[in-house]
Amino acid sequence: RIEKCYFCSGPIYPGHGMMFVRNDCKVFRFCKSKCHKNFKKKRNPRKVRWTKAFRKAAGKELTV
């Protein structure tokens, strides 16, 4: 099963990425440490230029 990165919305293939479980049992999956570090710094994915959330908000990503 291919999961989605919580921060950048990129695909996470089986055996890859990192799973972060908070004390309230909420699960966050990250494709790379870059995404996990930005999440820990409480960065907003919509303001980080390389994420899909930014591209969609800025009108750069074509949605079908």
Results as ranks from 00 to 15, higher is better:
V64D: 03
K32V: 02
C31M: 00
K42Y: 07
A58N: 09
V64G: 13
V21M: 05
N23I: 08
F30A: 04
R29Q: 07
R43Q: 15
K32I: 00
A58M: 08
F30Y: 02
R46N: 14
A53C: 08
T51A: 07
F54T: 14
F39Y: 12
K40I: 05
F28W: 03
K47R: 04
R22K: 07
F30C: 04
G17D: 08
K40Y: 11
P14E: 05
K60W: 11
F7P: 00
G17N: 06
V64A: 09
K47E: 15
V21E: 06
K42H: 01
V64M: 13
R43G: 14
V21R: 02
C31E: 00
V64T: 09
T51D: 15
D24M: 00
R43Y: 14
W50S: 11
F28L: 13
H36N: 03
K40P: 01
N44W: 03
K40A: 11
R55N: 14
P14S: 04
I12T: 09
N44A: 08
G15Q: 06
R29Y: 11
V48H: 11
M19C: 04
G15D: 10
F28D: 06
I12F: 01
P14T: 04
C35N: 00
R29M: 07
N23G: 11
P14W: 01
D24W: 00
C35W: 00
V21L: 06
N38C: 00
C31R: 00
R22A: 13
V21D: 03
C25F: 06
G15Y: 02
D24E: 04
C31H: 00
P45T: 11
G15A: 03
F39D: 04
F30K: 01
V48Q: 09
F28I: 07
N44P: 05
D24N: 02
K56Q: 14
K60T: 14
C25P: 03
N23Y: 05
R43T: 15
S9Y: 07
K41E: 14
K32P: 01
K41W: 03
A53R: 01
Y13G: 12
V21A: 04
R55D: 15
R29L: 08
K42G: 10
F28E: 12
A57C: 05
A53T: 08
K41S: 06
K60Y: 10
A58F: 04
K41T: 08
R46M: 11
W50I: 05
